[in-house]
């Protein structure tokens, strides 16, 4: 057991075995981290890794700090802090990444519109949302447990697939979403809530994000050592802190 534990550590995997984290979570995070570095539907491996680097830069970015302190985050022009590697991403996309990471509670449709106006497709935007927010989960857990952030994923060369869901539908979100029945899981709660449908335009984006998210939480019978109510209190408090309407 000790040998296995030290092997995991020396192999450079994401979590030390001393932490009481469930294997399904650590394995999911490792798989997601690797997947981020691989070519996606619309962004190459290097581009997806650059997205994570920009998201991390946003946590210490001077412009983001000034915007967060302003009455409107759109009142402060300027340049975001650069990342240490070359970046080929459109400036509008980089700006959106910084806003998503640093000030999610004040995102408006104008941020999405600015990215689309720069020539990025809705599907490519959705893929960015998945990559960034998968990394947010992994980075937040690391920092919360007192761990150093994992090194950026290894970027792999290769062609993007171009795959997207041609049957995605308009349900009032900024992007087309997965079409799904609205039958209820319980009163007030659909079996497939909109949040599960939100990235349905790009199936690989759904796969990446929920592969990362799923070991953390369940709507019922949560498989953790805290009660469902305790988990819901934490979840609701995060939603309030991030000023999330959904």
């Amino acid at each position: 057991m000790v040998q296995m534990a030290s092997m995991r550590f020396t192999l450079g995997l994401m979590y030390t075995p001393e932490l009481p984290l469930r294997t399904n979570l650590t394995e999911a995070h490792e798989a997601s981290w690797q997947a981020i570095g691989e070519p996606g539907a619309f962004w190459t491996g290097p581009e997806r890794v650059q997205m994570v680097a920009h998201a991390r830069a946003a946590t210490n970015c001077k412009l983001c700090e000034q915007r967060k302190a302003a009455l409107s985050p759109f009142a402060v022009p300027g340049e975001h802090d650069e990342i240490s590697r070359e970046s080929e991403l459109p400036p509008a996309l980089i700006d959106a990444i910084h806003r998503i990471r640093s000030d999610p509670g004040r995102l408006t449709r104008s941020v999405f519109a600015q990215v689309i106006a720069a020539g990025v497709s809705e599907a490519a935007y959705v893929e960015m949302v998945s990559v960034i927010n998968s990394s947010v989960i992994i980075d937040t857990l690391h920092r919360s447990l007192g761990l150093s952030l994992p090194e950026l994923p290894e970027a792999r060369e290769g062609e993007v697939s171009g795959d997207y869901n041609t049957e995605a539908v308009d349900r009032g979100a900024w992007v087309p979403v997965l079409d799904a029945d609205q039958d209820l899981f319980e009163p007030g709660m659909p079996r497939v809530p909109n949040i599960l449908r939100s990235m349905g335009l790009v199936p690989s984006a759904v796969q990446l994000f929920f592969q990362t998210f799923r070991p953390h939480y369940a709507l019922a019978n949560i498989p953790l050592s805290i009660s469902q109510a305790q988990a819901e209190f934490v979840a609701a408090r995060v939603s309030a802190l991030n000023e999330c309407f959904y």
């Binding site: 995102l107 949302v129 927010n133 857990l141 979403v177 909109n194 939100s198 998210f213 959904y246």
Partner: peptide, 26 residues
């Protein structure tokens, strides 16, 4: 486990707010 839930919702709230997903009707 509590921090595990917090980390997850730090990500999923951003998904909701980046895609403008509306509340489900029900």
């Amino acid at each position: 486990d509590a921090l595990t839930v917090a980390a997850a919702f730090n990500g999923i709230t951003r998904v909701a707010d980046s895609t403008g997903i509306p509340l489900d009707d029900a």
